[in-house]
Design a protein around this nucleic acid. Structure first.
Length: 576
RNA sequence: CGGAGCGUGGCGCAGCCUGGUAGCGCACCUGCUUUGGGAGCAGGAAGUCGAAGGUUCGAAUCCUUUCGCUCCGACCA
């Protein structure tokens, strides 16, 4: 492509409403433009990036024996009522009616549609498994769209689905897809990790998220230094193998703690460590109040609570509820004498002589033994993992890091196929329900995540496989015939070699071209100018390392190939 | 949905408190000069100040309503 024929509106300044680096750079590089909250137009260069990502996705899905199809974006409400999600999905599902007052929604995902398709066609175990996927625009009416392409309302997703006759078959497809995802993100040049995950509202019993490692990620993941255990902190197990404490302590005693609402304030006032204080948090679980106890220096993981109680909805209790149940303002709740269910983090069994809230204003109890003084409904793993915890698999060191979720694979089991009666006859002529899996990759989010992970002060540094072009060829002096001839010659040569090249033939000063080339993040830069040609050389620059070199102008083909191999090698090493 | 903030040429902003002819930088157009890291000079085009209503002799500025957007929180593949 010739730059002069391209629509690449680059900006010197970034618009004020762009917060994260990927959003700023996508706007500045002329790749996307915002239409309205959470919705973006992909300009030609941005579309190229999406297509490069999609190509890798398609190739690897094919290896996993998935076939591509395309389903409608608008879906009838009836299907969602059948699966039960019309009630459960909430406001993120954008609903509307047609002229005949029939109800529809915009597809945020396609379990219902694909299940409807397959149940209508597949009758026999001989027709299974079925593995299908699509790459399509999704719509989720996010409560708060933000971070540009990272969390839009409209976004591009690859969603795949498998239908199996047997548990083993379903697992095989799950792991085949898991492997395909590893290859996809590997090929795309990203630093990433598959992590064990909570399956959330999609449902199902087992799932992995694929996280691109970046400090700006919205998720926190925990991983082990010694083995390959890695999990989203939402899920990361905390194992407590200790012996319950057998020591006794003095009788509980009420002490005044005026205005000490937080663990820190209480600990400071009473001169004890935060770990000697028990934090009592009240939650509403499907509308019912429960108390959760964790050590004062720990955090409650409400997803573990939700899973423990097999609940739909967990929220922190509001101040009025706290007042009603504890007869005290927020900050003085404690387990002693509480009449609701009390769930305690297992780790608390290790100690005694705790400080707890007294369920009375400005007062706490000291010398509390939870088994002696309180009624604990159940002990369980209810807190968030910390770097001091041991790996639940091998006991190794745990580290926390930030990540961006770009892919998610779920074993759905029979959740949808049961609700929508997707059945087949097995070899005994007996009706069975199909076993499903679903597999998503946020294609547009991958682009944003890649930029979060790969950028510098000059702009984007695209991993070569997803860069809009492989190489940018700068003509520094378009008025010089000799330079022009050389540039055209190199341009034709690169195209013949199969290199995706953008030739900057604009009537601009050299500085403008250098700045734009860096901003766009194209991995390889070739610079042709009068100065270099006089010496018989063409300059080259590796966008990632910034390393510059010189290639002989009269033997470009071999020299370029050798240099390109070096650039790719640099990327491979960086990825590790 | 709760809290905070912002809407002024394409982009980034000032002006608003204290009402009185709408400004700056970048980008854009023309000309000349310049040409290896976002050029210089000169000239030019472009804004019913988000919208509606009100107060006033007079509103970008004060008041009310409304729409849009952003940030924090709750929520979420």
């Amino acid at each position: 492509m010739r730059f002069s024929n391209c629509y690449i509106p680059t900006l010197k300044e970034s618009p004020a409403d762009a917060e994260v680096i990927s959003h700023k750079l996508l706007l500045r590089a002329g790749m996307v433009r915002r239409l309205t909250s959470g919705m973006y137009t992909y300009l030609p260069l941005g579309l190229r990036v999406l297509e490069k990502i999609s190509r890798v996705v398609r190739e690897e899905m094919a290896v996993a024996n998935f076939e591509e199809l395309l389903m409608p974006m608008v879906q009838p409400a009836d299907l969602w009522k059948e699966s039960g999600r019309w009630e459960h999905y909430g406001k993120e599902l954008l609903r509307f009616k047609d002229r005949n007052e029939r109800e529809y929604c915009l597809g945020p995902t396609h379990e219902e549609v694909i299940t409807d398709l397959v149940r209508g066609e597949v009758r026999s175990y001989r027709q299974l498994p079925v593995r299908l996927y699509q790459i399509q625009t999704k719509f989720r009416d996010e409560i708060r769209p933000r971070f540009g392409l990272m969390r839009g309302r409209e976004f591009i997703m690859k969603d795949g689905y498998s239908f199996d006759a047997t548990e083993e078959g379903s697992q095989q497809n799950y792991w085949a897809c898991h492997a395909a995802y590893k290859r996809i993100f590997q090929r795309l040049g990203l630093k990433f990790r598959p992590v064990e995950a909570d399956s959330g509202s999609i449902g199902g019993n087992f799932s992995h998220e694929f996280m691109v490692l970046a400090d700006t990620g919205e998720d926190t993941i925990a991983f082990c230094h010694s083995c390959d255990y890695a999990a989203n902190v939402e899920r990361a197990e905390v194992t407590w193998n200790g012996q319950p404490c057998t020591q006794t302590c003095a009788p509980a005693e009420k002490v005044a703690t005026p205005n000490a609402h937080t663990v820190e304030e209480v600990a400071a006032l009473l001169g004890v460590a935060a770990s000697s204080v028990v934090k009592t948090m009240l939650f509403k679980v499907d509308g019912k109040a429960v108390a959760v106890l964790v050590r004062g220096d720990r955090e409650v993981n409400d997803i573990k609570l939700k899973n423990l109680l097999n609940a739909q909805d967990v929220v922190m209790a509001d101040a009025a509820t706290v007042q009603e149940i504890t007869k005290a303002p927020v900050g003085f709740a404690g387990p002693v004498g509480l009449e609701i269910a009390v769930y305690a983090d297992a780790e608390l069994q290790a100690g005694t002589d705790y400080v707890v809230g007294a369920n009375a204003g400005d007062a706490h109890l000291v010398h509390v033994d939870l088994t002696r003084d309180a009624t604990v409904t159940a002990w369980a793993d209810l807190r968030a993992i910390t770097p001091e915890d041991k790996c639940p698999r091998c006991g190794g060191h745990i580290e926390l890091t930030r990540g961006i979720e770009v892919g998610h694979v779920f074993m759905l089991g029979r959740k949808y196929s049961d609700a929508m009666h997707a059945a087949f006859l097995d070899e005994n002529g007996k009706e069975q329900i199909m076993i499903m899996g679903c597999y998503g990759i946020g294609v547009s989010r991958v682009a944003a995540a890649a930029i979060e992970q790969n950028n510098d002060e000059h702009g984007i540094v695209f991993p070569p496989p997803m860069a809009p072009f492989d190489c940018i060829l700068l003509n520094l002096d378009p008025r010089n015939d000799e330079v022009n001839a050389k540039v055209e010659q190199i341009y034709a040569m690169l195209k013949d070699m199969g290199v995706d090249v953008l030739m900057d033939d604009r009537e601009e000063r050299p500085g403008v071209k250098f700045k734009d080339a860096d901003l766009l993040g194209i991995p390889m830069q070739l610079v042709v100018g009068g100065k270099g040609l006089a010496k018989g050389i063409v300059e080259c620059k590796d966008r990632r390392s910034g390393e510059k070199g010189e290639l002989p102008a009269d033997a470009m083909a071999e020299a370029f190939s050798a240099w390109a191999a070096k650039v790719r090698e640099g990327w491979a090493q960086q990825q590790g």
